[in-house]
Amino acid sequence: MPKRFLLLACLLALAMPAARADDDDLESTLGEVGEQYAIAYLTPLVHSFGANQNSGLFHTAHIPRRSLTFSIGLKVQGAHLSAGDQSFRRVLGNVALNDYLDLEPGDPYYGATGDVVFEGPTAIGDDEVEGTATAYVDGLPVYQEGTISGLVKTRWVPLVVPELQVGGFAGLKGSLRWVPESDVPEVGQTKLFGYGLQWSPNVLLPAWPVDVIVGFARQEIDVGTLLETEASSVFVAASKQYGLATLYGGLAKESSSVKVSYVEEFTGDPVEFEMDGVMESRVTIGTTLDLGVMVNLEAGIGDLAVYNFGLLFGK
């Protein structure tokens, strides 16, 4: 039962932007558009995936030299995206119109060259407004077709992951984020796996006034056959304990990518592309309160602003 709950929590958060009142899922929505439209439509979602995964990787820099520590809990991450990310405009100049629009032989402007303008809500944009694909020839909008609406109108893209950490040997701490591969209805085989390692130089320099760690983490999330994500981070962090509270901050270099695969309905062609996350570095500040259970709040600031809430049992 606990395993099922964790799985459900993760997938709910993962699938939240993909959920729609009419039960359409992200994959069938994307099936209505081609690769170039999908790239622009998914851009904010893709960037937030990696930024979320690389959040909440530490909640203290204190690692005992010879005292086993163990914690298990949930980390809830949320990327708070710009309002401008709720819509997009992508212009493809001087292209064959039928390569990007649902034109068929015999239609006016089939085979013509012009500019194609994709615009409308992104995946996190208005779910009641349909986007458009418009062909311009010599400055005249000669053809237009409706595309897809947003999935969920929100500026928050969340991610929930279970996390286990074990440390206290030679200043080392290992972490594991894991949800077993499971068949989720309407999503498919879905899994989450991540690991990380931290080391504290305080074991060599115990007189330092603050605790310090260096570490790395790597994670993968697969959502059916639609999305495969990878994220990794290398970081240095410091913390100081004040009574029940630990304040911490850190710097990280990170990377992420999302591979998207689906079938376009109109052509029947498979569409596959990979996008890198925009977040390459971040400054993290946060605090952890030890109230019997550890409550952790954190902000990660880089190209995106990502917030993290953790609830951890143990030490």
Binding site: A40, G84, Q86, S87, R90, D115, L304
Partner: peptide, 19 residues
């Protein structure tokens, strides 16, 4: 600091084709 930080825009916002 956290409240004052906004995410950059990431979605493409291309200009319409030049006339």
């Amino acid at each position: 600091l956290a409240a004052g930080c906004e995410s950059d825009e990431t979605a493409p916002q291309d200009r319409l084709p030049l006339l």
